[in-house]
Design a binder for these strands. Sequence first.
RNA 1: CGGGACAUGGCUCAGCUUGGUAGAGCGCUUCGCUUGGGACGAAGAGGUCGCAGGUUCAAAUCCUGCUGUCCCGACCA
Length: 482
Amino acid sequence: MSIDNAVKENNAESLLADIAITAELADYSPVKGCMVIRPYGYAIWENIQRILDKMIKDTGHENAYFPLLVPESFLQKEAEHVEGFAPECAVVTHAGGKELSERYVIRPTSETIINHMFSKWINSYRDLPMKLNQWANVMRWEMRTRLFLRTSEFLWQEGHTCHATHEEAKEEVIKMIHVYEDLLHNYLALPIHIGEKTESERFAGAVSTFSIEALMRDGKALQAGTSHDLGQNFAKAFDTTFTDSENKLAHVWQTSWGVSTRLIGAVIMGHHDEVGLILPPKIAPYQVVIIPILKKNLDNTKVLNQAKLFHKELTDLGLRVKLDDREQISQGIKFNEYEQKGVPLRLVIGERDLENGCVELHRRDIRSKDKDIQIAGLIESIVRLLDEIQSGLFTRALEYRKENTKIVKNIAELDSVLDSKSLGFARAMWNGDVELERILKEKFSASIRCIPLRPELPSDHPCIISGTVSPQNREILIAKAY
RNA sequence: CGGGACAUGGCUCAGCUUGGUAGAGCGCUUCGCUUGGGACGAAGAGGUCGCAGGUUCAAAUCCUGCUGUCCCGACCA
């Protein structure tokens, strides 16, 4: 299906793959459920990595690396953890031509093996807090996979920290979910809701789980990152203890938090239009593409030199710029290619422009073309436009979310919201009765995305299921999700 | 894992019902002509029809099994 048709039919399944493949972000691999991330897609990941890695280090964490293989017995030490992850683990049973005496699990996440090491490294309260992060690949054998949003193998970062007190661990959990908010808002241009997961949606082995929830353009919510308060569950399972300042032995309090290559899926499904991908400038592999109009059998030196000069000036400013001076490809094809790839700005320069002292600039986000940009002041215009595009994309996504967030008082109202084509978030009050989650799942194939950290409803808003007002009621966001 | 569909040059697909020498469009290569939004013309390269069995004189086509992909559920970052 073409991207255009997929958008018109709101066929998200087809759309995601169409955009990812045409934009050359990724391709299907010969291994079930796994994708190949192509250079253009990987460059986006590298940009996200560079930005987030700095944030993680700036908040006092250090990078480390733990092995891919985890002894199967490790996974089994934490009861809820094994129950949650065992069904989706790939297991190595043979190596060196022999069957292994203990099987190895390919990490679905690294809490267990990291705790094993923590218990060796942590002895005293003076060793705390210990705040580590690793960039790694993990594998979860999912029933159904989708490019970027759910592949069997995916890339992520996972932070793992140990603290002397529960309060400090809780602060860490909230601090890191806000780091993710910063990343999504200010770099991916995707507005998110921060909130706590309900018990049924919690990470296997966590005391509480916070997530960031983004809204995609097809009206479905996407969990884009999580931060878990692990309490002492893993510490107890792995006997990760320390001697406190009063010489008493105690288990550490832990957190873990992660975001993955799913973020690229979030960008695709959060910013596309009927042409294809739209990339926020801050993570775009190329922020500007320069296309010189070349004439065959004519002297293009002047045009090419000017294009190279722009390329140098912009690159010197620290911008990521691509000069496409391929002579064999017509500019029409190039225009199309870079639009599908979501390059924020296109700078076109030909003989005609040089004579007039101007160039053509095309904005990908609103698909506008200005043919009379004066060369004098061009560089400043480009820098300003990139900022405008970045903030414009966020504003647009925020507007879209506002339009697609409905306040509901009861199930009947929810019915009219979730049954409509637009989907989106429903904001409601809830008394905590798990019956609601059953109804959501069975009737609406929806779920409680989170209990938002920043509630917006008045306290006398009635519970969606009981219809009563109570101080025990909590605000929730409901949506269909990926 | 339950239900459905599909698997044929690089891509999208036709051919299969009714077995008989493998097709189209796009893409690719060369040449010509064009060039400010996906040009045009000509010539050419490229496929043991997903894999393994079976039926048959003969299988892309019929039968069985397997694998993979997509869609709908359940599961999930």
